[in-house]
Nucleic acid binder design. Structure first.
Lengths: 343, 343
DNA sequence: CTGAAAGCGCTTACAG
DNA sequence: CTGAAAGCGCTTACAG
């Protein structure tokens, strides 16, 4: 690496002090002689000077960098949300450091600590819920932080998430409208109490009750992905197997499709299917898949905006709240008893 | 924000100098009295001291942060590669700033400049090829940089990519083995000369020639995604339409599946299909899809390792080179004339 | 074994 | 209108 050119070099070449160059850099031209200005301008372009942001950050106590901790960038929800977060951040001059905590609170803790040590200006986290003390400490210190996708019990923090109950409700009602009565719900394990899953089950239960349909506990499967094939086996071996299935998310969808594929169950004919989360192949699958989409880009955009507002101390007096986003129903063919192609 | 505790506070509380605390922090205990050591340790834990990495970075001229510029994090190739890059980086104490250049060289330029101003220790880029002067300057300065997925013509830089010719060759030969003779190749636009596309076409052409099969130019479609439906229309309206299609990547695959869906072309029966790039729904699609997978995680891991090696000045004398990775054929049913389910 | 001093590359009151 | 000085929070020779 060749030696980097610094503000001192520019000052020397332009024959002014570092202070003046610094004024120039920050656009404070009010009192600056036109002569001085052009000399600095020329020096900067001659030397191809690029300010060292690390030095600036140290002095200004602001890095213009935020940290984003997701469960796993490979999940399409995270990817989509990240993309919109990065868009908003970039537009506002912020960089984003991205971390995968893999739903592991130890990793999450380590990432939070590293990011803080790196002096990020704020944090967006899809929380594991396993680090209450840290979350609370950050909030106490008024450190800019926003949560995403999951509610942490008893924590008073801005959180952007889906109206999960509504998502299930849309699914249940759509299936009922299509003459399905025996509706099962399949989702990933409920043991770690992750909000979306719990709320989606609740929405399912509440919605059925609203329509006067009794709840059949055997129709509710909340299982680890790798126990799901067994769970589906149980479900379809019931004396009265379900006529339709709601998939709680895109992962469970894959398992359900796999199960149907291997057991030669014809989706849309033998069984109605609707899934929460839109999937890339929804419209080219046979049959096409009815889905409940999350407005992931909207959510990512909002979470980033809330964070940047906090960082810039706007809305400092607004109380933290839960920001719910509306799911939307995309009707395709997997949820229709009659195999009419209408999409 | 409450006031941050600094090394000075620790030094005061432990009754030593900042230098000694700093020694402690960097694990240089050789000459440190056991007494001193414990006093510092206690002070640090009392005060919950966390070193300010920005200050350290300024002094050490090393940020332990790298920048990664991809085309678009939404593309599954980028996502997968990013995940493995982040893994390697995290394991080695590096953070990753992620940027989406959207195949736009202006955006790419801005990102590179910002990342350099932020003093990243190195750069991984999936290049647009539109910023030769910058690439060259960085290489000249011996700045640690590694390219991914695409070759930049005339640039002597470490580049990790797929053996694209081999990928097409695998596809062609697999189709030939399955009795398909009239094989078309469909890929995204060739105008910007992006390596993988060009190489995949070449591989297709060469492989056919090797097997003594004449090239039919009408069977080669290199089009923008949004002109692809028209191109497919042309292809299938030919006097002698192809009996099999090679999809150049996962995007073209979606278009082909869409076309087949709307025109009621039965894949695996009416037409053989194989795609370069593995897709999430490959094994649950009807029929299941034969694919040529890239070892994305391996590639991400290698690109990160090469970069970290450069940063740490190992292998400093090794010449930049092209690191090709082997594609692998995943045989499913879309490429078999007989609809035998064997997967 | 430990500390004083200089310095990383900036910015920011403040003085003139 | 511009510059000298102090300081952001560290690290690193070097002295003792």
């Amino acid at each position: 690496m060749t030696k980097k050119v610094t503000i001192t070099d520019v000052a020397k070449q332009a024959n002014v002090s570092k202070s003046t160059v610094s004024q120039y850099l920050s656009g404070r031209f009010e009192y600056m002689g036109i002569e001085t200005k052009t000399r600095i301008k020329n020096a900067i372009s001659n030397l191809e000077y690029q300010p060292n942001i690390v030095a600036r950050s140290l002095k200004k106590k602001k890095t213009s960098t935020i940290g984003v901790i997701v469960a796993n960038i490979l999940h399409s929800y995270s990817t989509q949300v990240l993309r919109s977060i990065e868009n908003v951040c970039n537009k506002n001059g912020y960089s984003t450091i991205i971390c995968n905590a893999d739903d592991n609170s130890i990793k999450e803790k380590k990432y939070i600590e590293t990011l803080l040590a790196k002096q990020v200006d704020g944090l967006i986290v899809l929380p594991t819920s396993g680090n209450m003390e840290i979350y609370e400490k950050l909030l106490m210190q008024n450190f800019p932080i926003v949560f995403l996708d999951r509610l942490v019990n008893g924590l008073n923090v801005d959180t952007v998430l889906l109206d999960n109950e509504k998502a299930s409700k849309l699914a249940v009602e759509h299936l009922l409208d299509n003459e399905y009565k025996n509706i099962a719900m399949v989702t990933t394990s409920l043991i770690d109490n992750v909000t979306p899953r719990v709320e989606r089950i609740n929405g399912y239960v509440n919605s059925l009750e609203e329509h006067g349909i009794p709840i059949n506990d055997e129709y509710i499967k909340g299982l680890d992905l790798n126990s799901l094939q067994g769970g589906l086996e149980e479900l379809f071996s019931l004396e009265k197997p379900p006529s339709a299935v709601i998939s709680g998310n895109d992962f469970t969808l894959m398992e359900i499709l796999k199960y149907a594929f291997y057991h030669d169950i014809k989706i849309g004919e033998d069984i109605g299917l609707i899934t929460i989360d839109e999937v890339s192949f929804g419209s080219i699958h046979s049959p096409t898949l009815t889905t409940i989409a999350q407005p992931t880009f909207e959510m990512g955009t909002e979470v980033a905006k809330i964070l940047l507002d906090k960082i810039n101390n706007k809305k400092t007096n607004s109380k933290p709240r839960v920001h719910r986003h509306e799911p939307s129903l995309i009707i395709r063919n997997s949820s229709k008893k009659v195999g009419v192609v209408n999409e």
